[in-house]
Amino acid sequence: MHSFFGVLPSFAAEKVLVRYGLFEESIPVADIRKYGETQKVSANLQSILGYLSPKEKQQLQDALQVKMSLDIVALDKLVNTQMGKQILYFASQAIARRDRASVQALRSAIILGAKSPEGLGLITFLEAYPSNELVIDVSKISKLAGMASSSSSSADAPPKDNVSSSPLGQIALQYQTLAVQNKQFSGCLFGDSISAGLGNTLGNGTFNFGLNGLSTISLLEQLKSLIPTKVKCEKAIIAIGGNDAWYGISDELFTKNLQEAIALVRTMGTKEIFLIPAFYSTAEASSDPTVSAPLPRVEQINALINQVGETEKVPVEAAAVAPLYENNVLKKDLTSDGDHLNAEGLKIYREALLKILQ
């Protein structure tokens, strides 16, 4: 691997140095792993967590739970594409190194982290980073985040589907096209961030095509990109609609898009297609337009899903995900932010999908 990546140190990161102006704090990677696994906080980590709000702490804890099982060959091809190199260069600007190997080091940590039995996650990335210390400049991260947000819609503008046009959406889709070339799967899942949160945990022979922020608009773009790869799916689940409700997509456009998506999936050799209703949020989240769609609009979208299912003779598996809700409202103990599922919620959702896929 070292000859493959070039001359890099043989050690991995033992500490993360967080730098913000004159402030610096060194945190052992082992402390971060312990916090992710047990939520026990070391003294060094506590000094960092003290600056975070309860919501930000929960987001960090959620991020530490993400472990992606990735196709190493496809991932290696991806980081060598022009887009992959650009994103690595973009991210490397927030990492301080004395040499000029920031991009190379990031690439190494991603590939080696993905080879971990746990899959690629924040912790396995840190443990694979080829330096005994990873120096992160928070001020540069803030600047880079600002640059990224300024290139998209304004914070005051209504949310919209930009999955296929955003760099992260493009690279996620490009990874999928590389990973499924000429492959056949017993089950395929198409969905938004809630489905994406499952990762590839539906068993061997399945593939999760879930993408954050996906609505029927980008679902069509995704399917049109996948079909030329000649990927085949014996069974397919389409779990879509929540973002369509949030983005304000009209009834006519949603219906048209969903019908077209079903037609495209059928061209992938699919024998059975199942629809999952749009996911409800909590009442509190639904009242905040920056977080989620109003619950009445989600109900309207679900009525349209039922109509499309009847027209296309595709079953709508509402009963399968019913345990997530109470009176069409997401149960508070199954979510960390009112809109997405926590570990217990994802467990219920996963079991529902496994029953559908048999």
Rank of each mutant, 00 (worst) to 15 (best):
A179W: 10
I32N: 01
F274R: 14
G113Q: 11
Q259A: 01
S149I: 05
S218W: 06
E260Q: 15
S69D: 13
P323R: 04
L275K: 03
E317Q: 11
R19S: 15
Q82Y: 08
I276E: 12
L70H: 04
S286D: 03
L122Q: 04
G248Q: 06
I194F: 03
A128W: 07
G309K: 09
I27P: 01
S42L: 08
D288H: 09
L120W: 08
S69G: 10
L354F: 01
Y89G: 10
A179D: 09
L88D: 08
I348N: 01
D99W: 04
K55A: 14
K355S: 14
V298I: 15
E56F: 03
S150G: 03
A91I: 12
E260F: 02
N257S: 04
V73T: 15
I72L: 15
I262R: 03
S286I: 03
N342I: 02
G21A: 07
L52H: 00
G269P: 06
K224W: 01
G50A: 04
E127D: 05
S139N: 12
I110N: 04
L112V: 14
A239K: 09
R266L: 05
L226T: 11
S166M: 04
E284H: 00
F207A: 01
E37S: 11
I27S: 02
G121R: 00
R19V: 15
I238F: 09
A293M: 10
L219H: 07
